[in-house]
């Protein structure tokens, strides 16, 4: 039979078993792990929630995202642990004194030598420091360099470059017809009127499909003046697609107070 049978001796250490499974070797060390991404392990490994008292010191130095604390656990012990996520492609990346921002659902695990922080962009996490992390993508990851505009669903993350901004195809969206198109989708909305735009130096990571993980409600950042998405204002309007621009038909509703 051609199928490979793995045991702890043949499993790689901190490397891919195949394109969809990653093997982490623990030798008394610790890894941060997103809940439910462990599929199997050899050896003795403990999984403890971030709130576990004994881990306070570790959490204080490498985990700075209270909103995501309930999605993460710390794996510690010795053995080999297999990670996978929805049969997505998984890859490990090494950061050296770097920073990388990644969609929170795509990050599987990271070494505590990295510090996890919440990105100012909602739904994204930033890793700072030196170490290894494991991320999932639907289809292989493509690395591109700014300036570039990318589809929001294809964006996995970005490294070393400033946060992106929204880009709307205004020529297509404005005016009466544009408003109708945006509201109803009739008359040929291509679904690609909205992109993320990256400028500056760095690397942008894209996946080769538009399948995302269902976003988990993690709450909002503290309500504080000057904090984007702080819940103080900017509640979603419920309209899909691009937000209304002045002079667009879609604004009629709001003008009549509906």
């Amino acid at each position: 039979m051609s199928t490979v049978h793995h045991d702890p001796a043949t499993l790689p250490a901190d490397d891919n078993v195949n394109a969809y499974t990653f093997c982490v070797e623990l030798k008394g060390s610790q890894w941060f792990l997103q809940k439910g991404k462990m599929i199997a392990y050899y050896g003795t490994i403990d999984f403890n929630g971030i709130g576990h008292g004994r881990l306070d010191r570790l959490v204080r130095t490498s985990f700075h995202s209270p909103l995501h604390a309930s999605d993460w656990v710390v794996a510690e012990g010795s053995g080999k642990m297999l990670l996978a996520d929805r049969a997505f492609d998984v890859n490990s990346y090494d950061l050296e004194e770097g920073n990388l921002t990644i969609r929170s659902g795509n990050l599987l695990a990271f070494q505590p030598s990295l510090a996890l922080k919440q990105s100012i962009v909602p739904g994204f996490l930033t890793l700072i420091g030196t170490g290894k992390f494991v991320a999932a993508s639907n289809g292989p990851v493509v690395f591109v360099e700014p300036p570039i505009r990318v589809d929001p669903q294809a964006l996995v993350g970005w490294a070393d470059c400033p946060s992106p901004c929204h880009h709307y195809d205004h020529g297509y969206m404005t005016g009466l017809l544009g408003g109708l198109r945006a509201m109803t989708g009739l008359g040929g909305a291509s679904g690609e009127e909205h992109q993320f735009e990256f400028v500056g130096a760095g690397t942008v990571l894209l996946q080769s499909s538009e399948a995302l993980m269902a976003e988990q409600a993690v709450g909002t950042p503290p309500q504080q003046a000057g904090v984007p998405g702080g819940g103080a204002s900017g509640a979603p309007t419920g309209r899909s697609g691009a937000p209304g621009l002045p002079g667009q038909l879609g604004d009629l509703q709001r003008r009549f107070g509906l």
Partner: peptide, 19 residues
């Protein structure tokens, strides 16, 4: 399987834990 299955050998010295 959903994604290629990984075959893991269990022996007396290497017990295995699975999700």
């Amino acid at each position: 399987s959903d994604g290629p299955a990984v075959v893991l050998r269990v022996s007396a010295q290497y017990p295995l834990t699975v999700d």
